[in-house]
């Protein structure tokens, strides 16, 4: 299953009706050393582009936004104790799993080629 990507730098992996969401390699690299991370708790109802987590580097705080609406059914609490894994293993370190309310929202996300191009433009 290929990943999908948002323009706010979340990756999305879909299995059945559940979307697993993390922060992309590009984003962790832009942020630098992550020293704090937190996911919104299980049971939170999220709207499209609602906040699902927070990461902080030494210098800055930034939020993760829901690329899909629904309800958080799992939250990765391990990132609170080991936020640095977001830097070392961005594709394995997920924040939340969302039971999707409307899977058709996935169509608005980018595929890998489009996301890579988007990052290139953002960096320029």
């Amino acid at each position: 299953m290929d990943l999908k990507y948002s323009k706010t730098h979340e990756w999305v992996k879909v299995e059945g009706n559940v979307a697993t969401i993390g922060l992309t390699d590009f984003a962790q690299n832009q942020l630098g050393e992550i020293v704090y991370a937190e996911a919104e708790p299980v049971g939170t109802a999220v709207e499209l582009e609602g906040i699902i987590g927070t990461v902080e580097s030494v210098k800055a705080a930034s939020d993760l936004y829901a690329p899909i609406s629904g309800e958080i059914v799992e939250a990765n609490e391990a990132i609170e104790d080991e936020p640095e894994t977001i830097n070392s293993a961005p594709w394995e370190t997920w924040f939340v799993k969302i039971e999707m309310a409307d899977p058709s929202e996935l169509d608005a996300l980018l595929d890998k080629a489009a996301y890579d191009k988007f990052c290139e433009e953002e960096e320029a």
Binding site: G32, E33, V35, S57, V58, K59
Partner: peptide
């Protein structure tokens, strides 16, 4: 703004 990383530089 940074070379190796802020923590390492500090």
């Amino acid at each position: 703004v940074q070379y190796s990383g802020i923590k390492e530089e500090v």
